[in-house]
């Protein structure tokens, strides 16, 4: 009884598959996902560490950040040190803000309706880092402006 059924199942014509554009697109996204997550962690993690150490430094009055920076850049000229300090404290958080904003922002142009749609995806982790990065960059930028106005 089953051999008949087995034969029927074996000879049953099944839908055949072909390569889809999705298959290639997904492969690219899949293989790059590890790389993207490492870059994401670096860009999100570094400003976050700087932020926590900066807050800790302000509250508990220790100088880890200053000392580390001075030790690493002691052999460089003052101008170069200022540029590096600016990049680390303002540039990096701004890059993190930009990347995190881009990862939750989507643009779409609807030709039929002649509409340009801008969508923000609610992903709290990205929003939190964007806010933290923005606060950090603003804090150091305002601090630098205040210092230059005071003529330090």
């Amino acid at each position: 009884m089953n051999s008949e059924m087995e034969e029927f199942m074996e000879n049953l014509h099944k839908p055949q598959m072909e390569e889809t554009p999705y298959e290639k697109a997904f492969k690219l996204a899949l293989l790059n996902s590890r790389k993207s997550s490492v870059i994401g962690i670096l860009l999100i993690g570094f400003p976050a560490i700087v932020l926590f150490v900066a807050i800790g430094q302000a509250i508990f009055n220790f100088n880890i950040l200053d000392k580390a920076f001075n030790n690493i850049t002691s052999h460089l000229s003052l101008t170069l040190r200022a540029i590096i300090f600016f990049i680390l404290t303002v540039g990096f958080p701004i890059i993190a803000v930009a990347l995190n904003m881009l990862s939750i922002t989507f643009f779409n142009y609807n030709r039929q309706q002649k509409e340009f749609n801008l969508t923000f995806k609610i992903r709290w982790w990205n929003i939190l880092i964007t806010l933290a990065g923005g606060i950090l960059a603003a804090f150091f930028l305002l601090h630098l402006i205040a210092d230059s106005l005071a003529g330090k």
Binding site: E18, T20, P21, Y22, A25, F26, A29, S33, S103, I104, F106, N108, K121, R123
Partner: peptide, 19 residues
């Protein structure tokens, strides 16, 4: 979690025709 933010994956050209 990883790919919901990539509309190009589901909007690939010819995707609807092949589907």
């Amino acid at each position: 979690e990883l790919f919901s933010s990539m509309p190009q994956l589901t909007n690939a050209s010819n995707e609807d025709t092949i589907k």
